[in-house]
Computed example of a mutant assay.
Amino acid sequence: MYQEPIFLTPVFQERIWGGDKLKTLFGYSIPNDLTGEAWVISAHKNGPSMINNGSLQGQSLAQAWSEHPSLFGKETTEGDFPLLVKILDANDNLSVQVHPNDAYAQQVEGEPYGKTECWYVLDCEPDSEIIFGHRAETQEDFKRRVDAGQWDDLLMSVPVKKGDFYYVPSGTIHAIGKGIVILEIQQSSDITYRVYDYDRKDAEGNTRELHIQSAIEVTTYPHSSNAPEIEEQIVGDLVSTRLVKEQYFTVYDWKLNGRTVTPLQADYLLVSVVNGTGQIIVDGRSFPLKKGDNFMLPATVSSYEIAGDLEMMVAHE
């Protein structure tokens, strides 16, 4: 039985809006200073994470999902691994965009998952903002404002600060603003429909493709911004804040100063260390933890201890 955490190596993605904060904040060895995304826990075909410890070292998370279902609490695994965890460095504004639900993704794109996601703000510059939602009441109203280029009238801007959390269901118009670093937990999907990209051009002088019609079809009307119910529990030295419990994932913010023993059990846990240092102890073996580490705690681990001064984002199905 596999009795250790499964540590994963990030996959980096260059983006027109990327920067170098994945290096300066997390110590990652990024390919260049336009690195917008680290796919830190991923089995997606566009950037699968590799396992870097234990008997599965050198395998991808996707391979583990298909060949070792017991690690995920399953007798067999069908389809694709459902979740994807990223860290994004928005050195410039991201495009205004929207993602489809599962039905649209399957019927139109031939992909298994739509994209519902959530954001935890790890860092941001003063006066940072996101776009979250729109003011149109109907699809026709939305199309009219898009066609007229009435972006300030259509789009809703929201100020953000470090530690903020946003649940972003499929169909939500959104954009991460300049100067924000977020941890994103989402369905394992790479489908994005751009609505507006500030008329900017890439290094070759080309504007990026927009997907207006698809965006109009998948957007929710009118916008709904019902925030999930947040629940905090204090268990000894651990402050565990459940940020969201929805159809596709449950996400916690764990702040630990001391030691905790098996605070949560699920089929498997996806863990990203976003601050501090410490260790996780499994079956008498200690594994060091530091900011920027990402690992899966498999279903085959029935008990564990975590010690140190740490903040971790934890997710499961």
Rank of each mutant, 00 (worst) to 15 (best):
Q3V: 09
V11P: 04
V11E: 15
F12P: 10
E14C: 11
G19N: 06
K21Q: 09
K21D: 01
K23N: 09
K23D: 00
F26W: 00
F26G: 05
S29Y: 08
S29T: 07
D33F: 02
V40T: 10
S42E: 01
H44R: 11
H44T: 00
H44L: 02
M50N: 08
I51C: 03
N52T: 06
S55H: 01
L56R: 04
L56C: 12
L56G: 13
G58T: 00
G58Q: 05
L61N: 11
S66A: 02
S66W: 10
S70K: 14
L71Q: 08
E78N: 14
E78M: 13
E78Q: 15
P82V: 06
V85W: 05
K86L: 13
L88D: 05
L88W: 12
A90K: 01
N91A: 07
V96L: 15
V98K: 01
H99W: 12
H99F: 11
P100V: 08
N101C: 13
Q106G: 05
V108T: 10
E109Y: 15
G110E: 09
P112S: 00
E117F: 06
W119Q: 04
G133K: 00
G133C: 07
H134E: 15
R135V: 01
F142T: 06
D147C: 13
D147I: 11
G149D: 06
G149F: 04
W151Y: 15
W151H: 09
D152A: 10
L154Y: 00
L155Y: 15
S157H: 13
V158M: 11
K162M: 11
F165W: 04
Y166D: 10
V168R: 05
V168W: 02
G171V: 02
A175N: 04
I176L: 04
I182Q: 02
L183N: 02
E184Q: 08
S188N: 10
S189A: 05
T192Y: 13
V195S: 14
V195L: 15
D197P: 12
D197W: 10
R200T: 13
R200W: 14
K201I: 06
D202G: 11
A203D: 11
E204Q: 12
E204D: 14
G205K: 13
R208I: 01
H211E: 07
S214I: 03
A215G: 14
V218G: 05
T220G: 07
P222M: 10
P222F: 14
P222V: 08
H223A: 15
S225I: 02
A227H: 08
E231M: 09
E232K: 09
V239Q: 10
S240G: 04
T241N: 13
V244K: 11
K245H: 01
K245T: 02
Q247K: 12
Y248N: 00
Y252T: 01
D253L: 11
V261P: 10
T277M: 09
I281T: 08
V282P: 06
G284N: 10
L289K: 00
G292T: 12
D293I: 08
N294I: 03
M296S: 07
S303H: 15
G308I: 07
D309K: 02
L310E: 13
